[in-house]
Amino acid sequence: MKKVLVTGAGGFVGRHSINTLVEHGFEVHAVASKTLPTLSSDCTWHLANLLDHTFIKEVVCQVKPTHLLHFAWCYTVPGQYWKSEDNFLWVQASLELLRQFREQGGERVVMGGTCAEYDWKYGYCSEVVTPRNPDTPYGICKKALQEIVNSYSETTSLSSAWGRIFFPYGDYEYPNRLVSSVILSLLKGEAARCSHGNQIRDFLYVQDVADAFVALLESEVTGAVNIGSGQPIAIKDVVYKIADIIGRSDLVQLGAIASAAKEAPLLVADVTRLSNEVGWLPKFNLEMGLRQAIIWWNNSNYTGLKIE
């Protein structure tokens, strides 16, 4: 039987992968670092600090997974994780996890990467063409880890792939990120204060992100694969789509806050490998995903109110 170990399984993307993995016939073992979520009765949860190599060895030896889906990384608080020293610790931990996985007979590994590995001045990001020249510790550490994983896989004949995530949004997103913060503000009847919003980005609903990783895990595709929609859209258009759905366009305030210094005007994924080689396409278009996200946030404890 296919047996998968999912790290970061209580996180934003990881938690959405569990039911899909179960539906696809995996025996799922999910790793959480602090508390054990009750997300699914169809998987086995493990409490482990993956920064402690002893815990890594214990959980991998106990589970003996055939597959590894590695999402765990440093706590991704917006504005903080880009320069966190924990990024360097997670490179070490991820390599130890990879080594233990192979030593216990592991066959296929997929790890979560980031569009921050690319040189953002190019805008349109292709795994084959676009240079990788990250300028943050987060991007640098992810880039370094991907290169080592590639080399290790070639040396040991381990099957591996690397999913570079672009701009996910949806249920359980950190509340201060763009989409969630706009939704929360408008649901509360408060102004949604944004930058000019002309930046063009590539957004993908989080369930689609998780499903793309499961498809990549089940495929034989190796190397880096962009995980995005491939559809460019201006941030201001996303904001107004949210406002139109909620019915509070009057509360949108573009230009109310400054954009980040040296912010890239364009960041969009080339999803040719994802669609043609992995054979995966998203189930949610932008409006469908935003509606799902709005419903989730409206039913959460963050707003204190309900709308029809």
Rank of each mutant, 00 (worst) to 15 (best):
L158C: 04
S159A: 10
S160V: 07
S160L: 06
I165E: 01
F166Q: 09
F166V: 10
F167V: 09
G170Q: 08
G170C: 05
G170F: 11
G170I: 02
D171F: 14
D171Y: 11
Y172H: 13
E173Q: 15
E173Y: 07
P175S: 04
P175M: 07
P175T: 09
P175Y: 01
N176E: 13
R177F: 08
L178I: 09
S180I: 02
V182G: 04
I183W: 06
L184P: 00
L187N: 02
R193P: 00
C194A: 10
S195V: 12
G197P: 12
G197H: 14
N198D: 15
Q199T: 11
Q199F: 14
I200S: 07
D202N: 07
D202R: 06
F203D: 08
Y205G: 09
Y205F: 08
V206F: 07
V209M: 05
A210P: 02
A210I: 01
D211I: 11
A212G: 06
F213Y: 11
V214I: 11
A215V: 03
L216C: 02
L216Q: 11
S219R: 00
E220H: 05
E220K: 14
V221I: 12
V221E: 06
G223H: 00
G223E: 03
A224T: 00
N226R: 08
N226F: 09
N226T: 06
I227T: 03
I227K: 03
Q231N: 12
I233K: 11
I233C: 10
K236A: 10
